[in-house]
Design a protein around this nucleic acid. Sequence first.
DNA 1: ACCTGGCACACACCT
DNA 2: GCCCGCGCAG
DNA 3: AGGTGTGTGCCACTGCGCGGG
Length: 554
Amino acid sequence: MAAASSQIRAASLEEPLYYLYNIDSVIQWVRHHYEDIFSADEQYLLDTIQQLDITSRATLCRLIMRRGEWFRDDRLNYPEIGDINTPLRHLAEHDLIHYPAVCRLTELITLCRVAELRQLWAIHAEGPPPQGKDALLLQLSALDDGISRPLDEWWPTAPFQLISLRCQAIFDILKMLFFGNAQQDWSAFVLTELGHQRYEKVDLDDQHRAFANRTELDAFSAISALGEAHYLQLITPDQVLAHLPKKQAQLWIEYRRQKLLYRASHAIERQGRHQKALTLYRRCGYREAKIRQLRLMEKILPLPLVARYAGWLSKRAKRADWREAAEKVWVRSARKIGQSLPKRQRFSPQLQYIALEKPSYSVERVSREHFHQDEKPCYYVENALLPGLFALTFWEALFAPVPGAFFNPFQRRAADLYQEDFAARRSDIIAKAWHSMHQPNYSQHILTRYRDKAGVANPFAIWGLLDETLLEQALTCIPSAHLSAIFERMFSDLRQHSSGFPDLIQFNLTTGTYQLIEIKGPGDRLQDHQLRWLAYFEQHGIPAVVCHVSWHQP
DNA sequence: ACCTGGCACACACCT
DNA sequence: GCCCGCGCAG
DNA sequence: AGGTGTGTGCCACTGCGCGGG
Ligand SMILES: [Mn+2]
C-alpha cells in the first residue's frame, strides 16, 4: 500500500486545524507501518485517541505541542477550538489528561508569576517574601512535602485549574517512529508549508522503516534520553554507562551508542579518572576515541610503551586521521626518550601573507574584498561550493529511492548516506553521474539542476552561499579532472570529507584558472582535516594557498 | 537533522 | 519604560 | 615566539507578546 505513505503531506496553514490534520496523519502513518511495535495497551491508547471527537483531539494536540506536562487552563486561548472546557473534560474522562489535576507544590509554582508566588508565600510561609523570582521559587520549593493535593488546598482562591498531560510518552514514540530520529518535531510540517525548509520528493519506501523492532526503538530512545540528560549534567557519566544499551546490530543506532560512550568516557577523563577513561576509550569505536586514547596514553603511561604503540598504529591504523594522530604522538614520545627517528618530510602548504585594515566583520570577508577584482572575482564559499557541486553532480544517487533509504517526506538525506556500502548500493546511478562529468554539456546540466534544486535540504550544498554566476565560473575555471579528484575523496568518507575546504575561491576569467585560498587570521591555525585536504590538493595539482592575514597598525 | 557540526577563537602549557 | 529571554505560533 | 592541546562560542525560520529585572 504505497498510497498510505504518500498521503503524508503537510496540511495547508489556511486550515484552522492544520496541526490536528498533521498529527492525525502521522498517527495513521505510524500505525500502518509500525502496528507490530506497539503493546496492546499502547494500541488501546491510540484507538482511544483516534476515536475522540475532533475538538478534543485538537485540544490534545495543542497540549502535546506545548512544552512540558503541566498547564493552567487560563493560559489556553485557541479561537479555532472555542470553549476549551468541554474538550478538556472529555480528555480527562479518557485519562489522557488530569483535569482538574492534583499537584505537588513544585509543580504548581513553576506555572506561577511573581505576584502569584507572593500570594502563595503569604499562605504557606512566614515573614516577607524573598526578593526575585528565583529566590521565591527556591524557598517555596523547600516547602514541597512530596504530596499531591487539589489546587484549592494549596491556593483556595486560585484563578485557574491545572492540567497534567498523561500521554506524552506515546506521542514521543509516534514522533520518533515517524521521523526516525529524536530531534525533528511537529514544526517540520509548518516549516515546509512556510517554505523555510524544502525536502526532496522521493518515492517513499513502504516496505522498510527506520526501526526494525521494539528493541531497536527502545535502545535508540534510551541513547537519546541518556545523551540529553548527560549533556545537561542531570546524570553522571557513570550513570550513562550503567544504562547504556548493549551493542546494536543496526549500524546507525550503534554509531549513536558509540558516540555517547565516547562522551561519557571523555567526561570521566576530565574527572581525572585516567585509567578508567583509557579502558573505555580502548573499547570505543568512535573516531575521536582512538585519538583521545593516544593522547591519554602519552600523558599517563611509560613513554617507551607509548612510542611503541603509537609507532605501530601510525603505520597500521585503518583511518588516515588515526595514523596521523598516532604519528604525532609517536614523534613526540620517541624524541623524549631519545630515540632517533627516520626523517619524514611532512607536507607544508603554500603560504602567502597579507596585511589589512582591521575590519568590524570577519577576516574571511575582508580578505575576500582584498582579493576581489572584476576579472578575478573572489567568493567566500568554505564548504558550500565543492560539496555543492558534488551534490548537484550526484543528486540522483543521493536521493535515489533505494530500499530503506527514505521513509518520510522530511529527510534531508538517505538513511544510509554514511554507511560504507552507500556508493555500492547506487553504483549504476553514480557511474552515470561520473560519466556525465566528462560530457560537453556538464556545465549546463549542473546549472539546470541548480535551478531545479536550489533550496532543497541536503548535507552538502549550502544554498545561501551559491548563485548561478559563481557556479558558472566554477564550472568554467575548475577542470573536471580536479572535480573528479575532489569528489573521489569525498566518496571515500562522506562524513569526514565533506568539510575542511578553503574559505575563498578566486577565478581568473582571463586565463580560465582558479585558486583556493584558506584564510588564517592572527591566532588562527590550520586544522588537521583542512591540512589533509590541502595535501590532497597538492597531490592532484589543485591550486590552493594558505593566506595569513595580519592587521595594519592603526 | 540541534545537544550537533563546522568553524574561529581564547587560553594554558611546552619547547 | 527599556531590554532581554522564552514560549509559542504560523 | 611558535608549536601544541583543549575548551568555548556562534549559528541554526521569523515575529510576537509576555514576564522579569
Ligand atoms: Mn579560515
